[in-house]
Write a protein that binds this DNA or RNA. Structure first.
Length: 545
RNA sequence: GCCCGGUUGGUCAAGUGGUCAAGACGCAGCCCUCUCACGGCUGAAUCAGGGGUUCGACUCCCCUACCGGGUACCA
């Protein structure tokens, strides 16, 4: 068989050679130890939490090592290309602080290793396919879908490994004449790898994985498709060619790729490429009925990245959370360095978990509280208004008074034990709602112990109210009112002798609290009053009376 | 079915032959306290099961179970 001739028949237009490719995409000039990583989303532009999780690893590895992180659009499938997909990918990741150095961009490709759309790299792939055909390592296959199904069914019946390999690879050893004949007849075909694997007795191969250690697997035996009927490569082939030519040093991808590793190994070997360091991450899981399952696009709103944006999670909080899942020692580090920039943390692949982590909203919320408490009020204000503008435009008028808002946002946040009231922007609006007349409403009932005296309490309060009082004298007055009306000045007294009192000062102040905030629970009343101002304070008391 | 991963409290997890098996979230109780939050303290709760190897196994080996993935001209 004249493979050279076959290659020429199959790819008459391909004049480029692997050597030329090597020259065109030389090794990168990067400092020692610098890592090159990539994100390869499909062109729908849909980015979910799993992507973010992986992208975060890519980004940290590259930027921590002084390397390069690039974006490559994997559009070898004939899936519909969604308009603006690249922008969507870039924007959604940018929101979480993840930026690309190279690759597909809003204003076209950037970098010397492009094109960065796989659909535009057909001739590059074909150069290598042609090369493999010339060497007899690949061949055209004319099997139809029906024939393949038939083969598979036969294999299943005989309990054999399904697939096109060994004697099932019926086009493997066609003569040049037969191939030419099929070609002339216009039969559709694909190019398959001629695998060296022994179906009878597969050898073991060893591949390094930075997260999982040395992986031991049986060698590939399948004559996998490398070039589809469309003239575009399969993922397997594109991965090998692209990651080599783009000089990727670390391939971060989900563990669902683990089982095709032998195929990739054989391709790398046959093409004479060095194998990159693989980093197979665990899949994010979700608990359901006591079982773990993969997060699903349809069932789990928290998988959509937009969910976090819409709910009003601060990107920094999501980053903190992701890092706590990604690196088990991050929480410890954060506890020791509460104010350090997150990028100071030394991210390591070895600290990554190999088993699927359950996504935990409770934990996210807790992390979020701790994150927001570290953000200065002015910045929080920008974040809050930015969010509200997009998702709660009707409250924007309440947020206009920046000076007023800053005081509200900083309420009780100073000192060594700051309040951690805020979780998300949406929740914040709700939490501080009583500061705004149009959002203020009485939500809770007066406590039983003091309900009957509510009128008396409020009128006495109003009578003695002096906006200039400091916190201590202010509360002293409430104590007096409480005592006068038959309430204990201290909760402990009441607890000791509940029959001697109607209730305690806490019940009395709750009545005031409800009049002012509409709620039985709130931050410090005195501080709230100072922010509300004398006029509004009095008006609210009066309104309830 | 076959192949490949994985399995420490409800959740996230430290742990690499000798620990009373860290810590965090959540939960419960107590303290602080005018409410809530914050903070502090205490508590309940874990090595999937069975065999080996060993003086000694969460750690090493084998089997089983369970979970996840793959088994495409999808990525």
């Amino acid at each position: 068989m004249d493979n050279k001739k076959l290659a020429e028949i199959l790819f008459p237009d391909i004049k480029t050679t692997p050597e030329e490719m090597e020259a065109r995409f030389p090794e990168r000039q990067l400092p020692e130890g610098a890592m090159v990583t990539r994100l390869g989303p499909s062109p729908t532009g849909f980015i979910h939490l799993g992507n973010l999780y992986g992208a975060f690893v890519d980004e940290r590895l590259a930027h921590q090592s002084g390397g390069t992180f690039y974006l490559r659009i994997e559009d070898t499938d004939d899936k519909r290309f969604v308009e603006g997909a690249v922008d969507t990918v870039i924007d959604s990741l940018d929101f979480f602080g993840i930026n690309f150095d190279e690759g597909a961009g809003k204003d076209g490709d950037k970098g010397d290793y492009g094109p960065y759309f796989q659909s535009e790299r057909a001739n590059i792939y074909k150069t290598y396919v042609k090369y493999l055909v010339e060497k007899g390592e690949a061949y055209p296959c004319f099997l139809t879908e029906e024939e393949i199904t038939e083969i598979r069914e036969g294999q299943e019946a005989e309990k054999l490994t399904p697939g096109i390999y060994g004697k099932f690879a019926r086009c493997r050893d066609m003569s040049l004449e037969d191939i030419e004949k099929c070609l002339e007849e216009g039969k559709p075909y694909v190019i398959r790898l001629r695998s060296d694997g022994d179906p009878e007795d597969p050898k073991e191969i060893h591949v390094e994985d930075a997260i999982r250690g040395t992986l031991t697997m049986p060698e590939n035996i399948q004559d996998v498709v490398i070039l589809k009927g469309t003239g575009l490569p399969t993922y397997h082939f594109a991965h090998v060619v692209d990651d080599h030519l783009m000089r990727t040093t670390h391939v971060v991808r989900g563990e669902e790729w683990l089982s095709s590793l032998p195929t990739h190994f054989e391709l790398f070997t046959k093409l004479g490429f060095d194998i990159p360091m693989y980093c197979h991450t665990a899949v994010l899981m979700k608990s359901e009925n006591g079982n773990k399952r993969k997060l699903s696009k349809r069932k789990d709103p928290e998988l959509r990245l937009d969910y976090y944006k819409e709910t009003g999670y601060h990107p920094a909080a999501v980053r903190e959370y992701l890092l706590t899942i990604l690196n088990s020692n991050f929480e410890e580090w954060r506890a020791a360095n509460p104010d350090a920039p997150i990028d100071d943390f030394d991210f390591t692949l070895g600290k990554m978990s190999t088993s699927g982590a359950l996504f935990d909203l409770d934990k996210l919320n807790d992390v979020s509280k701790d994150t927001l408490v570290r953000i200065p009020a002015a910045e929080l204000y920008t974040f809050l208004t930015g969010w509200a503008e997009q998702f709660r435009p009707e409250v924007m008028k309440d947020l206009e008074d920046e000076e007023y808002l800053l005081k509200i946002l900083d309420l009780g946040r100073d000192g060594k034990k700051p309040r951690k009231d805020f979780v998300t922007a949406g929740q914040m609006i709700d939490f501080i709602g009583y500061f705004f007349d149009d959002l203020f409403r009485i939500e809770d009932a007066f406590p039983e112990e003091a309900a009957d005296d509510a009128g008396a309490i409020l009128s006495a309060y109003l009578e003695t109210y002096d906006h200039q009082d400091d916190q201590e004298t202010w509360f002293g007055k409430i104590r007096e009112i409480a005592v006068q009306l038959g309430y204990a000045a201290k909760p402990k007294d009441y607890k000791k002798n509940p029959d001697d009192y109607k209730g305690h000062v806490g019940h009395v102040s709750t009545v005031i609290r409800i009049a002012l905030t509409g709620r039985a629970q709130s931050p410090d009343i005195w501080e709230i009053q100072q922010i509300l101002g004398e006029e509004k304070t009095k008006a609210r008391i009066l309104a309830v009376m």
